[in-house]
C-alpha cells in the first residue's frame, strides 16, 4: 500500500509540473469546469424562480446537492478523468504493454497515469460554495451532519470512478471505443439531478444497477435529512461492490487485449 501512495504522489507531482508548463491551458481547464458549474447552477436557479419546490427539493437544498456533486466532480477531474479519457488511445497504440509489465497493478497505473492538479483550485472554490449553501439553509442541523461527507464523498468518487472505468475498459474488448465517452457523458447526466425527481423505475435504476444516485443525491440527502444509517451503509456497500466489480471487469477485459506495439 505504501508503494501505491508513493507512486501516486510522484505522478501527482509530475502531472503538476506538466500542467504548469502550459499556463494558459491550466487556467482554461479551471475556467471550463467553472462554466460547467455555472450552467448547472443556472438551470436550477431559473427553475426555482418559477416554483418553490421540485419533488421536495427547495432552492436552498438543491444548492447543497450541487455543491456535493461539484465537489465529487472536481476530485474526479483532478484524479482520474484525463487518464480514463485517454485509455482508448493507449490500448490502440499499444502503450498498455508498458503498464502490464510494471510491478504494480495495471488498473491503478491506467487510472492515475495523468492527473490534473489544476482542479485543486476548483475544490477550494466548491468548498466555499458548500459553506455558503449550508448557511442558506433555514435550519443549522445540516452542519452537525457535515462530517458524514468524509465517508460519502470518497464513496461517491469511487462509484463515479468504477462506472466510468467500465466504459473506458470496454476499449480493451472493442479496441476503438472513443464514442463510448459520449455515451458516458449522457449517462452521467442522471447524476446531475436529485434522484427524487425521477419516476420510480428510473429512481430505482440510479440507486441499484446504475448507482449514479450515490454520486450527488445520496450524500446530499444524508446531510440534509435526518441521519439514515441504512442509506449510509448502502453508500459504502455500493462503493465497495463497484470497485471490486471494476477490478474483475478489468481482468476480464485484459483477456481480449492483444499487444499493438512491435
Amino acid at each position: 500500500m505504501k508503494k501505491y501512495f508513493r507512486v501516486f504522489a510522484a505522478i501527482f507531482k509530475a502531472s503538476a509540473i506538466s500542467d504548469l508548463e502550459y499556463r494558459l491551458n491550466f487556467i482554461v481547464k479551471i475556467g471550463t469546469d467553472l462554466i460547467w458549474y455555472g450552467t448547472q447552477v443556472a438551470i436550477f436557479e431559473v427553475l426555482f424562480h418559477h416554483t418553490r419546490s421540485i419533488s421536495g427539493w427547495t432552492i436552498e437544498s438543491t444548492r447543497v446537492f450541487m455543491a456535493v456533486l461539484f465537489l465529487v466532480d472536481a476530485l474526479w477531474m483532478m484524479l482520474f478523468s484525463e487518464s480514463l479519457e485517454r485509455m482508448s488511445d493507449k490500448v490502440r497504440r499499444g502503450d498498455l504493454d508498458l503498464l502490464l509489465v510494471k510491478p504494480i497493478s495495471s488498473q491503478f497505473m491506467m487510472s492515475v497515469q495523468k492527473m490534473s492538479p489544476a482542479y485543486v483550485a476548483n475544490v477550494f472554490l466548491i468548498l466555499g460554495w458548500l459553506i455558503w449553501a449550508l448557511n442558506q439553509l433555514p435550519d443549522f442541523s445540516a452542519w452537525s451532519r457535515l462530517p458524514l461527507l468524509i465517508i460519502t464523498i470518497p464513496c461517491a468518487l469511487i462509484i463515479t470512478y468504477a462506472l466510468r472505468f467500465f466504459f473506458s475498459a470496454t476499449a480493451l474488448i472493442f479496441t476503438r471505443a472513443e464514442n463510448i465517452t459520449y455515451v458516458w457523458h449522457q449517462v452521467y447526466r442522471l447524476a446531475t439531478r436529485p434522484d427524487t425527481i425521477y419516476p420510480p423505475w428510473l429512481r430505482y435504476t440510479v440507486l441499484t444497477f446504475l448507482p449514479l444516485g450515490f454520486v450527488g443525491s445520496v450524500p446530499a440527502r444524508l446531510i440534509l435529512e435526518t441521519p439514515d444509517t441504512v442509506l449510509l451503509s448502502a453508500c459504502v456497500f455500493v462503493a465497495v461492490v463497484c470497485l471490486y466489480a471494476s477490478h474483475r471487469y478489468w481482468n476480464f477485459a485484459l483477456r481480449f487485449y492483444s499487444s499493438a506495439s512491435s
Binding site: Y22, L24, N25, V28, K29, G31, T32, I35, W36, G38, T39, A42, I43, V46, L47, H49, H50
Partner: peptide, 29 residues
C-alpha cells in the same frame, strides 16, 4: 497558442446554456 482544445470545450459548454438547449430561455428572469 500550443493548446487550444480547452477553449472549444469551454465555448460549447457555455453555448448549451445560451442556446436554450437546457431550458426555454423565456423562463430566464
Amino acid at each position: 497558442l500550443t493548446r487550444v482544445h480547452g477553449f472549444t470545450v469551454a465555448k460549447n459548454i457555455a453555448l448549451t446554456l445560451l442556446t436554450g438547449e437546457l431550458f426555454p430561455l423565456d423562463l430566464v428572469p
